[in-house]
Design a protein around this nucleic acid. Structure first.
Lengths: 278, 278
DNA sequence: GTAGGATAAAATGTACTACAAATCATGGGC
DNA sequence: GCCCATGATTTGTAGTACATTTTATCCTAC
């Protein structure tokens, strides 16, 4: 349930992949059995792969976000593009409307469909964030994600300490307990995400909650980075405990500071990993 | 150009309005000349009204966000809904895919299409924010918007002071000059929005920039509230000057404080207006 | 020769039909 | 009474045809 947008990436939905890489070449790709693809990917990834235009959204979205198709460039016209992706124009158009709503593309009659400048992209969209992470996120991007965390999460912790309901506190507490009890990295990451989501929920501000997509992506990138040195993956548990306690005791200032420290710690960890890699 | 999502509301695109209010009644509404509608609304609002499925997105989106159709409820089946809105199933489906991407609805075969719980809504989406404001935003919602401003903008001002380029500083400065020179409320609001957008841009963090939709909506709601007592609409100019100066001098702490004060001031103003109204 | 408008061409926008796929409900066989 | 098959219902996909918009071109008029 958790870890949604991150789970969207991975080796799933590769069915059309080889095909789509040649979209802009003149060589036509052979139509692939759609049923076969669905069955194959269904094992790994039963959701969001069931419908065809979901594939198209993902593939086109990834190509645009990864820079394979650059802003200002035009996409092939619908009929041609549909043929090359071996889907109907109907399905392609439904996908393009979604990408258009995300601010990635812009269609006009006669002119065609072109990729918009990155300033117009809805950068907080969960899909776009996930697509940006799919091909190993750049250090630059990770830095920006951490900066967002530094701004959002301390404020959220403070607000949660002020306004949480008893039920919301329980949710935070349960997530904390799950982190403490986690045996493997998978259980830990899931509980960690649940913890941060619970804090956001406890703010009782739905705008705040929607920012979880950013936190989720940031944590996901962090997990990937620190996956190798995962020997003591629980080292941040005390930080979480302090945040939880402060929220329980309704101490906004303490909660803010604790969360601030947690994120700062995570940031320095990332920097350390980066140096080790370089 | 600015004031986009706010401008989307207003009395535009009422063409189908009377029709759509009866979507769930058994009475069928008369089909309306589509061409006539487009021509009529084009005077007021040439953008986003050109295409038919844009209408459908807005109308359905508004009905859902306003609570006219509640989470858990099912929409009429596509064929029926298309007929009642006097559009083709094709156009309706393209609109529904967009609403689905915004997290408002969820479609499954045989089951039909149902409105999702509000936690799944992409609350930061510019359209959703605008729709929530269309029918006089609730005090509760305005409060949440201000809270977001209090979190985002001081941090953005600090980051801008640290990382702005000369060009970005010029943009902030020009917006400030426009505010100082503004004669009417319209010119002021436009310049004000430009100022806050320029500050976000100066952070050089595109995730930050995407949060402009929230700031925009918050400021828009504020302008509407304070429109009556607009005698001295320039009273916040000194606040803006302080922010600008701090960004110019690369003083992040000062910039943060100045922005903090500006937003706090705006918040207390809103409370005053609310009391006066009550 | 240039300006202007009519016209054609090319892309997306919309409508309609037909069928496929998924899923829930119903009913029959055991 | 349970299980499986079968049908019904709704969304999903394909394909065709035409409308609309906008650019480019050409042709005429001055």
């Amino acid at each position: 349930m958790y870890y949604k947008s991150w789970a969207r990436q991975g080796p799933a939905a590769r069915g059309h992949g080889d095909c789509f890489h040649r979209l802009f070449q003149s060589t036509t790709c052979l139509p692939v059995s759609v049923t076969g693809i669905d069955k194959e990917t269904a094992k790994v990834k039963p959701i969001a792969t069931r419908n065809l235009h979901g594939h198209v959204i993902r593939e086109l979205g990834r190509m645009i976000v990864s820079g394979e198709i650059k802003p200002g460039e035009n996409l092939p016209r619908e009929e041609l593009l549909a043929e090359r992706m071996s889907v109907s124009r109907t399905a392609l158009r439904e996908a393009m409307k979604v990408l258009s709503a995300k601010g990635l593309i812009e269609s006009r009659q006669k002119t065609g469909t072109r990729v918009r400048e990155t300033v117009h992209w809805n950068q907080l969209d969960a899909d776009i964030l996930a697509w940006r992470c799919e091909s190993m996120p750049t250090d630059d991007f990770v830095e920006k994600l951490v900066e967002m965390r530094e701004i959002i999460e301390p404020a959220a912790a403070a607000a949660a300490a002020l306004r949480r309901t008893p039920e919301q506190l329980v949710a935070v507490g349960e997530a904390y307990e799950a982190m403490a009890a986690a045996c493997g990295l998978d259980a830990w990451t899931e509980a960690d995400l649940a913890f941060h989501e619970a804090v956001l929920h406890a703010t009782n501000n739905e705008l705040m909650i929607s920012l979880f997509s950013v936190i989720e992506t940031a944590l996901g990138a962090y997990f990937v980075l620190s996956a190798r040195t995962a020997a003591n993956f629980k080292y941040s548990l005390p930080h979480h405990q302090k945040v939880y306690e402060a929220i329980r005791r309704r101490q906004p200032v303490v909660a803010r500071q604790a969360m601030q420290k947690m994120v700062a710690d995570s940031r320095s960890n990332i920097r350390r990993h980066r140096k080790a890699k370089a």
